[in-house]
């Protein structure tokens, strides 16, 4: 048994899983509050990565370098992704709040299609190289064949985001309003919660987190195009369902489990069928444990 190989698969799985988790959080938060699969969430992640790339390009040309660029780019990505998320909700979902779920879902698919092609037309259909701005720390030399510096940063940032989000949801007023809205929107409204505001905020936070994921993975993989959001979005959705949609710890757990299983599957079985595997995984969960690992079982009100 090759332990280094195993370990590198484990670390690779953790990297994938962290990114899935970051995107899955947005899905799960939105689903928890308005019971909608925001199909366009993956596109927000892609737009985050593109914004970062553009900012990096401009700043590099202006003579900046090092970590400062990355931080500014990440901040810009977060701001823009949040702005896109907010706008998207206003245009495509808010007018459909009372419509059948099928309508909102189709609207979401349309939004996803639109954003992908908007970036394709305004930028390019080709892959763009994304500079790796995370320096290789010297102390990581001995384990460089197993884990890279960018991966360490991914783990750290993911953990930090989770922590902040937990604090926000558990201890702030807004977090309380979010939880109340998720449980019973009508009741929350009657108790004086501004539901529209809560929903907007959910989109903003979810989009910002997705953008962080976008910047991290783009810098790790080294290239992006307009299509990266699609598959990542679907995988993250699988992660959210796996963990139990609506549950935030579930999204993280689901992301990690999916990351690892995929990593080991491609490492030991076959890389041709990697995506098939993720989909079969999803079907399996939905059939055998539709409420996911940490989700609560739901009974329909009649």
């Amino acid at each position: 048994m090759n332990w280094d190989y195993l370990l590198s698969l484990f670390m690779g799985g953790l990297t994938r899983g962290s990114i899935y988790a970051l995107i899955a959080l947005g899905y799960t938060m939105v689903y928890g509050i308005i019971s909608l699969i925001n199909f366009a969430h993956g596109e927000i992640y892609m737009i985050g990565a593109f914004t970062a790339l553009i900012v990096i390009g401009v700043l590099t040309l202006a003579g900046w370098n090092g970590m400062a660029i990355l931080l500014i780019a990440a901040a810009a990505a977060v701001v823009y992704a949040a702005a896109y998320g907010w706008t998207m909700e206003r245009i495509a979902y808010r007018p459909l709040r009372r419509a059948p779920r099928l309508s909102a879902l189709i609207s979401a698919i349309g939004m996803s299609l639109f954003l992908q092609n908007y970036v394709r037309m305004a930028q390019t259909a080709n892959f763009l190289p994304f500079p790796n701005l995370i320096p290789d720390f010297a102390c990581l030399k001995p384990v460089a064949h197993i884990v890279r510096a960018s991966e360490i940063v991914i783990y750290a940032v993911t953990a930090l985001v989770m922590l902040l989000l937990t604090l926000l949801v558990k201890f702030t007023r807004m977090g309380k309003a979010m939880r109340a809205t998720a449980q019973d929107r009508e009741m929350a409204m009657l108790s004086g919660v501004d539901v529209d505001q809560v929903i907007s905020l959910t989109f903003i936070i979810g989009s910002a987190i997705a953008a962080i994921g976008g910047v991290l993975i783009a810098s790790h993989v080294g290239q992006i195009n307009f299509y990266i959001g699609f598959l990542a979005g679907i995988k993250a959705f699988v992660a959210a369902v796996l963990g139990g949609i609506g549950s935030m710890p579930g999204a993280v757990l689901g992301g990690l489990v999916l990351g690892w299983t995929e990593s080991f599957f491609t490492g030991y079985v076959s890389s041709d069928y990697e995506d098939v595997f993720a989909f079969l995984f999803l079907v399996g969960i939905l059939i055998f444990r539709p409420s996911g690992l940490l989700g609560r079982k739901q009974t329909e009100k009649v």
């Binding site: 245009i91 495509a92 459909l96 909102a104 349309g110 939004m111 996803s112 639109f114």
Partner: peptide, 10 residues
């Protein structure tokens, strides 16, 4: 088409 899906639904 993307814009159309959204607009038709709305």
């Amino acid at each position: 088409f993307g814009a159309m899906l959204v607009l038709v639904m709305v």
